[in-house]
Design a binder for these strands. Structure first.
Length: 120
DNA sequence: TCGATGACCTCTA
DNA sequence: ATAGAGGCCATCG
């Protein structure tokens, strides 16, 4: 289950909402920045999701590696350390990372909302 | 207040 | 499949 994130973890409620949305991702499930933004009530502020993950305290232990770009493309620089770590973590969960991309259903934004669904 | 920036998204060539 | 351009939205200096 997801760790509870206090409302005052960050002065900005939107940031907290993003963290919660990410924390709610079940193991082995993937989601995109756009979907997370949507679920956090930010509409199309997908970029904000990246910012939120960037400033997220390690103590939260957010499964940020389960968040990828649209189409299953990893949103981090190929040569960065974070990219390497995301690859490693995804593989640890049984997700195949191939050439900087992960297998994602050829669905559009509508179906995309279903992936990150936290219920069975 | 304004311009620059970014772990984004989508379309077009 | 790859590259470039425009658009979105909130934060930062």
């Amino acid at each position: 289950m997801a760790r509870r994130i206090a409302d005052r973890s960050h002065p900005n409620p939107a940031i907290v909402a993003i963290w919660r949305a990410v924390a709610a991702l079940p193991k082995g499930h993937l989601s995109t920045y756009g979907v997370i933004a949507e679920r956090a009530g930010l509409g199309r502020a997908a970029r904000q999701v990246g910012y939120a993950l960037r400033i997220a305290p390690p103590a939260l232990q957010l499964p940020w590696h389960r968040v990828v770009g649209a189409g299953g493309r990893l949103a981090l620089p190929r040569d960065s350390e974070a990219y390497d770590q995301q690859c490693r973590r995804l593989r640890a969960e049984g997700i195949v990372v191939k050439n900087g991309r992960v297998p994602l259903p050829p669905s559009t934004s509508l179906d995309a909302l279903l992936w990150g669904r936290a219920h069975c």
